[in-house]
Amino acid sequence: MDFKPSVFFEALTSPAFIDGVKVTITLTVVAMAFGLALGLLIAILRSSPWAPVRTAAWAYIWIFRAIPTLVQLLFVWDGLPQLFPTFRGDWFSAFLAASIALSMNEAAYAAEVFRGGLLSIDEGQRLAARALGMSPARVFSKVIAPQLIRVTIPPLSNDFITMLKITSLASIISLQELLARTQTLVASTFRFVEYYSAAALYYLVVVSIFMIIQAQIERRFVWMSRPSAGMSAIGRVRQFAALR
């Protein structure tokens, strides 16, 4: 079996690799942040009283979910400069193009997650908040949002992990993220297994760290005065059912 541990460990600790990981994580966080913000807006617009607004929000989701992410990425990177000369400047970096394409793509998926979340919140919650005299902004931020976050953490965590991996598509547009760095090193050494294994390990570690963070966040949204850590699985399911 041809596997040289020394090459593998050298890859793991090489500055080029670590730079690649930094770009991957930064792109993931930026694309998710803008994607979630835009997605929430689109979800809210989908229940707008004005039909044209609802249709526009629906069309956005339709288009950006239907077209492959890679096509969207290439369209932003290669297509925008052709359509608008202003995008031909140096300021339009591969990182910026990837951020735009991936966040617009994420927004379409997040909008559906948020819409589902909003539908799952009992109408009585909004009614009670309005009856107290809360302004529409307060109703949302103090009553709806905390409950929306709780139900959307699991599906949005899925999106986050997917995004971390989808950023590797940006290697196509020459963004020096983790996969692009790996390929450069592979091309000069022909040690495929060691370098791809090192990259895989980095993805695994980053996703694991994120899963720990997710568990911490979910724990904050349990809404019980007693810690439920020692509770049986059935007990947890029952309480989850009672909370809804």
Partner: peptide, 13 residues
């Protein structure tokens, strides 16, 4: 005006 609902509608969070 105070309002009390059939299904309580307390805020679970």
């Amino acid at each position: 005006i105070g309002m009390v609902f059939q299904r309580f509608n307390l805020f679970p969070h």
